Computed example of a mutant assay.
Amino acid sequence: MSTALISSVRAALSTVDDPEIRRPITELGMVESVEVDEFGAAAVRVLLTVAGCPMKAQLTRDVTAAVSRVDGVTSVDVTLGVMTDAQRGELRQTLRGDAPANEIPFAQPGSRTRVYAVASGKGGVGKSSVTVNLAASLAARGLSVGVLDADIYGFSVPRMLGVTGKPTQVDQMIMPPIAHDVKVISIGMFTPGNTAVVWRGPMLHRALQQFLADVFWGDLDVLLMDLPPGTGDIAISVAQLVPSAELLVVTTPQLAAREVAERAGSIALQTHQQIVGVVENMSWLDLPDGSRMELFGSGGGQAVADSLAASTGTRVPLLGQIPIDQSVREGGDNGAPVVLTAPNSPAAQAMGKVADALAARQRSLVGKSLGLTPVR
C-alpha cells in the first residue's frame, strides 16, 4: 500500500461535498477509512449522517468519480456506514459551534445574511411565484440562497421548486432539501399527501421559530421568506424572530390588490422593519401584434410604492413590473422556475432585474455593532 497514493486519494475526497450540507466530507468526519492495495484497487468507507440518508446514491457516485480520477487507482469500491450518536454530536459541533440549539442565526448581530420577507395583502397576486423565481435567479448568480415557506396554511413552494425529497434530521438539526441550488424548507414536507394544516397562532409561531433555528441553513447570502397573505400571526412572528428582515411587497395593478398591499406594507410602521421595495406582478399581457393588454389596470405598483414611501418616510422603489406569461404558471406546476427554463422570456427578464437589485444591496447595519468606544 503506497502512502503517497493514499494521500492522493484523501486529497481527492476533500473535493467531494456532502450533497445536503455542501461541505467537504473530509471536514465533516464522514471518511472512516481509505485503503489501496498493490494493484491500485481503492476501498473507501464513508459514514452517512443517518441510515436513511436520501442522498447516499449521489454521494457514492461523487466519491467514486473523484477517486477514479487519481493516477494509479485502477478501481474504486465505496462502502457506506452510519455515524454513531457521538460522531453526529461532533458533526453538530463542527457545523454549529457553541451556538445554543434554539438560536436563530439570522437574528444575530454578526449575521451577513440578507433576509427578505415577501409579503402581499391578498392571495392570488403571484407572491410565491415571485419568491421561487427570485430565489432561483439569485442562486444562478452564484449566491447562497434559502427559501422558507412561511405560508403554513397555503404552502406551495415545494411544488414550484420541484422538491420531492424530505428533510433529514442529524442530532437536532434539520437538513433542508436542495433544488436548483436553493435550500428549501416547508411544512408541506412534513405533512402526508395534501393534508390541511389546522393550527392556531402559537403553533404557527413555534413552526416558524423551528424552521429558522433548527434547520441547518449554512452560510446564506440571502434568505427569502414566503409569507402568507395579510398581516396576521406569521407577519408579526417574523418581525419578532428576525427583526432585521426587510419586506418585499408584491401586488398587481388592480385597485383592490393595491389597497390591501398598502396595508400589508404598512405593518412596517408597527414592526419597525424596512421595506426594500415593491414588485408589480401581472402588469400586462403581450399580444401577438406587439401591443399590450392591461388586464388588471395600470399604475398599481408605483402607487403602492409611493404610498408606502409617504407613510414610512423612507424611499420605497418599484423594483419591477412582471408581465403575464403562461410559462411562469407552467414552470410553477412543473417545479422548473421560468428564470431557468426560459431566461429570455419577458417575465424572466423582469424577475432577473429584481434579482439584480436585491443582489446588489448591502447588508443593513441596523442592530449591528460599529465597534465604537466612547472617549471621556
Rank of each mutant, 00 (worst) to 15 (best):
T314P: 08
A11T: 11
A239Q: 05
S283R: 04
A107T: 14
G332R: 06
K56H: 12
S8G: 04
I234W: 02
T164L: 01
G201E: 00
A309Y: 13
S128T: 15
Y153F: 06
G320C: 13
S128R: 11
W217Q: 11
Q58K: 03
D233K: 12
S14F: 02
K183H: 00
L287S: 02
D214F: 05
S7E: 14
M160W: 06
G371F: 10
D325M: 07
D226G: 13
L372W: 09
V238T: 11
V132S: 03
T84F: 07
A43T: 15
V16Q: 07
T60H: 04
N334K: 14
V316H: 10
T94M: 09
A179N: 07
G313K: 06
L212N: 05
V197N: 08
L59Q: 07
V163Q: 09
I324Y: 00
D289M: 06
A140T: 12
A359Q: 05
T15P: 02
G265W: 03
S128N: 10
S14Q: 09
D219R: 09
V249Q: 14
T314I: 13
L318S: 08
Q87E: 15
L138S: 06
V115G: 03
P288T: 08
V73N: 12
R329P: 11
T49G: 00
R315A: 02
V76R: 01
T373P: 03
M30T: 01
Q58V: 00
G332S: 07
F155S: 12
V118R: 07
P19R: 05
G124L: 03
E246I: 06
G265C: 08
D18I: 10
D71A: 12
R361H: 08
V36P: 09
R114D: 10
A57H: 11
S33D: 15
G124Q: 03
P253F: 01
V34C: 03
A4T: 14
Q321F: 02
E35I: 10
Q349C: 00
R263E: 15
R22Y: 00
G154R: 03
L161K: 13
L248E: 14
R10A: 03
Q321K: 14
S7M: 15
D286N: 14
N281H: 09
